[in-house]
Computed example of a mutant assay.
Amino acid sequence: MKAVTYQGIFNVKVKEVPEPIIKNAEDIIVKVTHASICGSDLHSYHGMVPSLEENYVLGHEAIGIVEETGREVSRLKKGDKVVLPFNIACGKCIYCQNQLESQCANVNNEGEIGACYGCSRLFGDYFGSQAEYVRVPFANFSPYKIPENNEIPDEQLVLLTDAIPSAFWGVQNGGVKKGDTVIVLGCGPIGLIAQKLAWINGAKRVIAVDRLDYRLEHSKIWNKTECFNFEKNEELPSLLLELTEGGADVVIDCVGMSGKMKPVEIVETALRLQGGALGAITFASQVIRKGGTVMLVGMYGSRYNTFPLGDFFTRNITLKMGIAPAIHSVPTLYRLLQTKQLDVSDIISHRLPLEEAEHAYSIFHKREENCLKIILQP
């Protein structure tokens, strides 16, 4: 089968690889119909994921048709159409039973963190879904069966795998409530959706911060946000404190370690002494009000130098973070799309065949062609 494979820093190739097979009784094989590229995939593309080996199949956002089932699969059958949330989880451990399936105890032999597709041995060693077929473990828990009367376009259903649940996690776990002022850092797909969900949760004011004008313009037009480019105003934290009369109630960081790195961060990241940029956290510490909440949704690496711990501690800031537990939220989010309370049609900027994945990764990395979300079709 054809699949998108990692070949080194800034190098992916669509290659022929062996088709996946059933390994365990609760496995299914899914024929992928639509996949997409996540900002986290760029961490692999940038060489920032430890233990990622050559020819590893990438990707963790896909929908498709069940092709084959293991003997103990009871929830699905051949021909069912499914959403594949990026978390891989058993559904039985204490974490899965408490809606924290991103930390499942039974899916990763490499450490104590959970697992997802296409992210190397570090995240459980499961080949990714930017491919013609993918093996899906624990099929009695993880996949979401798309209702037969579904009217939501397939390309929007793909966003239920990660982008929408991660944005939802940011807004819900960040505690956004009626009357709040919310600052969202980053206007990529997750940031844009977080802005939409902040309004749905009752925010009275949503402010977007990014460094790319086309993304800010998109946010302003589609999400009715107040937009600011941090590269064009060195005094932006002070300005936002003034405009919000003391800071935001909630700051949602949708940037993570892929933010703009300082020269020293580039060197330290290359030496594995730091896990990418820290700028978004520093910015968040400067624009949150006393007693507010900073929610980190963007992916971060290991240790970080000059972490602004004192700024959070002395001002009674609540700092929340983590990998979104997507699986349990998909039914709720499906209904938001179905009832049109949430519209994500504007997020999808490119539709390309799987064979053009190399070009897709390049324009996503370079932020060319006003790229937001790329859908790949095998």
Rank of each mutant, 00 (worst) to 15 (best):
E110Q: 11
K2Q: 14
R315L: 09
I347T: 08
T282F: 08
P147G: 14
D311M: 11
H60I: 06
C93F: 02
P143G: 02
L376V: 06
S285F: 06
I113P: 01
Q286T: 02
K15R: 13
Y334R: 06
S129F: 03
F364N: 05
G246Q: 13
V17Y: 04
L84K: 00
I146A: 11
A270D: 00
G256S: 06
R211L: 10
A277T: 09
V66Q: 06
H359E: 11
L309F: 11
F123Q: 01
P263S: 02
I323A: 14
N106S: 12
V107A: 05
V251L: 06
S166F: 04
A270H: 08
K262C: 08
N108S: 14
D210I: 03
G259R: 03
N223Q: 14
S219T: 08
A248C: 07
V32F: 01
Q103P: 02
K92I: 13
Y144D: 07
K178F: 14
R205P: 06
F168R: 01
S36Y: 13
N316V: 04
T314V: 14
A35T: 13
N316T: 13
F10P: 01
L271G: 04
A115C: 05
V136W: 00
I221H: 09
V287W: 05
I21G: 07
S238V: 06
I323R: 15
N223Y: 04
N108D: 11
F283Y: 14
G279S: 10
E151K: 15
P85A: 01
R367N: 12
G246I: 07
S329W: 07
Y6R: 02
P165Y: 08
V330F: 13
S349D: 07
I146V: 15
C96G: 01
T332R: 15
L160C: 10
H365T: 07
K31H: 03
C96T: 03
F138G: 03
T69R: 00
